[in-house]
Amino acid sequence: MRKRKSIVEFILFIILLTGAMFMMIPMVYLISYSLRPNSDIYQYPPTLFPGYYKLTFENYEYILSKSVNIFIYFKNSLIVGLVSMVLVALMSSALAFVLSRYKFKGKEIFFLIIIATMIIPGLELIIPQYQIAVRLKIINRLSGLIPVYAAWMLPFSTFMIRGFVDNIPREMDEAAYVDGASPLKVYFGIILPLMKPAIAAVSIFNFLTCWEEYGWAQTVISSEKLRTIPIYIAGFFGRNNFTQYGYVFAISFLSLVPIITIFITFQKYFITGLMTGSVKG
């Protein structure tokens, strides 16, 4: 019996490994071309694994030496990502709590509206959002990016966390109320700690989304020192089909490193958090 199990496991392992190789092909492509001169990408026939002598770090050197500002861009992306993430975490968890525990007229309709707004593409909303941002005087500031990002991620996060909260038994709330607690005390003292896995899960996802966002960032940010990483990467794309892809791939790889690190570190929260959240849906 045990032998059978381990054979099955072995087969699964091989299947998964093959699949994983397909998943990684473009990544290999990316790393491969980032380690070669810019003109290599135009070669025919294309080669994934060039000879050893071809490999060079010149693209990375160029990027890291030429722009000392790259650390500023990383910092900007980090700030925007973190603040947006925290804002959404706070607001969506509070919202989820209220939606889960309290009845009021139009609750379900309100919830549906929140979800429905996810259907309208962000691209379309740029103009109205820009006008609001101008009026609030947050154009060309990092604080112009954050509210829109937060608002954008709010529906999905609320949805996920609400499902999670629905699964927390009401008896816990009841017990606290009997003891004379107020709603705020129940929320902060009991529910919020229990929500931590769910919050962690959506937070990681939200951070990643902010890290990569380009459209709104490009519209709001004009100053060079306020650029986020996606804007910086876009600056390497040339017109007339002439882009130095060596640099593009190198900087893209560099910008993936923090994300991957965060993901690996937090991925166990990811799993536990999503768990009960999506079961209820």
Partner: peptide, 26 residues
């Protein structure tokens, strides 16, 4: 306990918003 938590959260937010506003353009 609730008050301390609230304080902590608001402090963190304040610091972050402060950081953000500091990076205003030239």
């Amino acid at each position: 306990m609730k008050n301390r938590k609230l304080l902590g959260i608001f402090l963190t937010l304040a610091i972050m918003i402060g950081l953000t506003s500091c990076t205003s353009p030239k």
